[in-house]
Amino acid sequence: MDEKQFHDYLSSFTDADKMLSAPVRDTIRINTLKISKARFAEITKISLEPTFYEYGLYAESEARLGATWEYFLGYMHTQSLSSMLPSLILNPAQSDLVLDIAASPGSKTSHLAMLMHNRGAILANEVNWERGSALFSNIARLGVLNTKVTVRDGTRLGINTYFTKALVDAPCSSLSQPYAYKKFTSDLAYEMSKTQKKMLFSAYDSLQEGGELVYSTCTYAKEENEEVVKLLLEKRPEATLIDPGIEFPHDSGLSEFGKEFRKTARIYPHHFSSEGFFMAKVKKG
């Protein structure tokens, strides 16, 4: 896809000019597993600005954010504001058994652990050993203690009726990332969607009755977003889309998939200067 084709593609569901001209700002998440927000504000020289999420902050620093004392000490994690939302929407409790089916590099896993105050339990799965090393490293740096790492194929997890919550941050065509459109084709979206569907079903089937999951991607392709969730709703009739439960700027999912997709969220850079994302929250039974 070239630049013009990408513009036309985006125009089919949003204001492409507005979206493409919006800046994407650096953000950090304060890691309260290691430091309080008040203490962080005392010790840091990174210039911070509040967002809609109390621990997610716009950050400006002369030093690379990943080469700061704050990062080394695990007091913060460099993470886009959009990518903080799946964990917030999943809203895990300290008693939950949580599956994070595609966990590397561990940004959302460690955020889940933070929301759970290192209690309860998270199974952080990653199919790839190489990507798994970033997961292990972030877990240690950020002081995550309630997480067990497995290296398995998430599309065939084979665990049934076990977890109370699940996060499916699926591998995707990453169309929200700079210049990803150059590699994007409908064939790529189709191939990705096959894996995404298997992964979503695998995670859904691992949930207990009444369990909840969040499905997210960082792409705009409907084949990898609404279409994947739609298939789950068709094949698992007891599955329902539910409201994200928190307030944040977003567009609803594409209406062509039905009224219930108003409960899903599409995030574009012009919403709060962060990368694009899609999120859907599903309840089992």
Binding site: I43, K45, T68, W69
Partner: peptide, 8 residues
């Protein structure tokens, strides 16, 4: 690597 300092 650490390229900054703490404690404003």
């Amino acid at each position: 690597r650490v390229e900054n300092s703490l404690n404003p």
